[in-house]
Amino acid sequence: MTVTRRHDGELHLNRRAFLTLGAGSFLGVVASWRHATLQSPDSLPGTGPSGRLWDPARAGRPLEPVTTADNDAVIRAIEKQLHCTCGCNLDVYTCRTTDFTCTVSPAMHEQVVDLAAQGMTGPQIIDQFVRQHGVAILMAPPKRGFNLAGYFVPSLAIIAAGVVLTLVLRRWARTAAPDPVPARPLAAAGTPEELERLRGELDRLSV
């Protein structure tokens, strides 16, 4: 709501003018109150006072208002698979929503939105980016050719090592196992005095 006051000149008021002003301001307050209650529910784009900042340069690069495409789940899913080329090592979505000084990721975002608006599907858009920039544009290498080694060598190595380990352990266990319970006579060899001493030693150890 805007309020204007006249400070220039003298204040001449007759009765009628005074009443008009009173009624006007009442209506104004009511109108603005209604306006306020209307505004508060949820975002009404384009409403509300938004004054200029004292020094906009301090707030970084000027941004565009958020559109529905920016929050679109499909767009977001696509962008999370694309690597931002600004050198930040992040995906396009994370970069554009984190490093607001970056101009590369918003441009790539624009391109994704444009391609989607042309009716291309997610995989098609991604293919388009790969054609344009090479496979390094993908956050994870595609699963084909040598890249399969990237995905499966660790798991295969672990499985192979696990199998070898199991076999080795089994052999170790077998070579060590052959005495089921032959130890009884062995231990009985201890004289009562020795056993007593062993007991003493054990009592000193705390577990």
Partner: peptide, 16 residues
């Protein structure tokens, strides 16, 4: 909450 920046130098701000 991240403050991304402002629109056209006004108080309209972009948030994540």
């Amino acid at each position: 909450v991240v403050l991304g920046g402002v629109v056209n130098g006004t108080e309209q701000a972009v948030f994540r």
